[in-house]
């Protein structure tokens, strides 16, 4: 059973912004919000690191429990998606979410202003239906991870990406022992 997840490798992220631009383009996200935020910690100081913040597709998502209109759901493959038709824009999910993932745009199509938008693992773009009203559903193939310049952002089945990540961590730990 697949369980889609993201892993962020802060020892690789260099804040190139590739994930940001890839996401904007792939999902047509309006100007004033972004499904992915890059936060820099200790800028200009020793230990400076960059963290990308998106929906982490939690195993037990607090937003799903919090949403008063059952507008957020977790799919069988682990992806947490939101239904913009149901959303009332109460912003309660943003309080429940420990990652600050839900966003509420003030620009873009008028009928979607104030309606929650967040990462959908690239399954659903910003406008969830096409011009014929058909729901859009795509393969779980997150562009932020695919385009990540240094492969700091890993997206995919949890078992696979954690294996990759663990390998890197192990490599770094070994290096510390044998290093000068």
């Amino acid at each position: 059973m697949v369980n889609y997840k993201f892993v962020h490798d802060k020892e690789r992220c260099i804040r190139c912004g590739g994930c940001f631009a890839a996401c904007k383009q792939q999902n047509g996200v309006p100007e004033d919000i972004s499904r992915i935020n890059i936060v820099t910690i200790d800028e200009g100081k020793s230990g400076e690191r960059h963290i990308t913040m998106t929906c982490m597709h939690c195993n037990d998502p607090p937003c799903v429990r919090a949403c008063p209109v059952k507008g957020i759901s977790k799919r069988e493959d682990g992806i947490v998606i939101n239904d913009k038709d149901k959303c009332i824009g109460c912003e309660y999910c943003s309080w429940a979410c420990p990652f600050g993932a839900p966003k509420y745009p003030d620009t873009g199509p008028a009928e979607l202003r104030g309606i929650m938008d967040k990462c959908t693992f690239c399954v659903i773009p910003y406008e969830q239906t096409d011009e014929y009203g058909t729901s859009i559903l795509r393969a779980p193939n997150p562009k932020c991870a695919g385009f990540c310049a240094t492969k700091a952002r890993l997206g995919g089945d949890a078992s696979e990406i954690t294996a990759t990540y663990n390998e890197r961590v192990a490599g770094r730990l070994v290096e510390r022992q044998i290093g000068v």
Binding site: V69, C87, I88, G89, C90, E91, Y104, R113, G114, I115
Partner: peptide, 9 residues
Amino acid sequence: SHEARPLLA
């Protein structure tokens, strides 16, 4: 008034 869609809310 805070909701984006008060009637639906």
